[in-house]
Design a protein around this nucleic acid. Sequence first.
DNA 1: GGCCTAGGCTATGTATGCATTGGGGGATGC
DNA 2: GCATCCCCCAATGCATACATAGCCTAGGCC
Lengths: 224, 224
Amino acid sequence: MSAAPKSKSNTVKAQDTLREMIFSGDLLPGSTYLEAELAELLGMSRTPVREAALRLEAQGLLEVRPRHGVRITPVAPSDMEEIYEILTELEGLCAEKAADAGHSEEEVAALEEAIRHMDEALAAEDREAWAAADEEFHSALIRLGHNRRVEVICAMYNDQVRRARAVTLWLRPLPTESNEAHRAVCKAIRNCDAETAGRLHRAHRREARVLLTELLKRHGLRNV
Amino acid sequence: MSAAPKSKSNTVKAQDTLREMIFSGDLLPGSTYLEAELAELLGMSRTPVREAALRLEAQGLLEVRPRHGVRITPVAPSDMEEIYEILTELEGLCAEKAADAGHSEEEVAALEEAIRHMDEALAAEDREAWAAADEEFHSALIRLGHNRRVEVICAMYNDQVRRARAVTLWLRPLPTESNEAHRAVCKAIRNCDAETAGRLHRAHRREARVLLTELLKRHGLRNV
DNA sequence: GGCCTAGGCTATGTATGCATTGGGGGATGC
DNA sequence: GCATCCCCCAATGCATACATAGCCTAGGCC
């Protein structure tokens, strides 16, 4: 992301490393780790680890349990539903605002670019690329909403469901209809039809949510 | 809130105290304070103050600026608009879900109770009581949404706009129409009419937002 | 034999001290 | 007179040491 190699503080390093370790599964969801343990793992003292933990807790990636170390937050299907509900509403809002307000040409172009990437990935049956392009679309849409706080919230929750999406990506059929939905939303935005843009996008998100939670439940993935 | 007087840790005490000091205006929005300064103020060392600051930063009440102490986050009208947009969507979602899902009788009763309190406050022209009842209504509605994360987000943002609302409470006319809107939302929920409940509540919130930001701008309150 | 209690142990909560860093201010040169 | 550069120092970042609280275990009592 930010290509600023200027001597990162240990707190930041700890934060980034722990974050990566959570995403990669090096730290198991549901288990707890001692501060000292993590500190040794990262080669620093407990202080920056504690601070990193506090920040990651705010992002919902782990919980600091007084006198019991940190517990990596597991994401159960019910959590996914909560998160998807929120993303649905906030992205829907962004779609409406994008259609309403004066959207700059390049911002809408970013949407269409992402859709093209999805088309290509779909043609190549490259699931990873499709997922990346899907994220690209959603993040471009969120940016169009011009609400910094919404951007932060969505980024946070997208982080939390990343693991789950990575798993389900291989369990579902190729998401061919998804692109139609995206295209329709994009068109509504171009037409400045806020109501349609919002409604379509919400419906799209809702379908994704049902698909995902059904998959998780069917495959007995209680938490990831 | 939680009546657990079991020897609070200094971190928690610092967090609560700073929070109160921000709400009460003892710490001025926009100004910065040194960690050592706050530590002395609270009669403890820098460590728990730092931790408290990190937690409060996550709640958006202040920003920790490396090497520059903490800055109490001011809330400008543009911030209010962002926040109100989010509250509008999420509360709208709650209204829909409340109407949709099986809402327990007592939960809806809490809504009606709050409305009655507002009526009484309005009759007595007691603005403070009305504001309290208004908060009561919104928080009851959010609880009806049965989404823990939404509850957390809304609580956080309501905190952030509390100061602004406290100011504008005395600048606006008595909110007589507001109650009609609340009553209508409540009725739609009783009727299990999700679409209407959501639409009405969103419209109500949107009006409140416009009213508030107009007031702030008209009175030249750049930030509170 | 089982339960209750006391003591120690361990992990966190807190304080303190030192190293680092980045910026403000002063001085110098143009 | 103004801009630039460098140095000093204040404030933080981090490590370490110590206090404290909860838990587990072992021992004694009923």
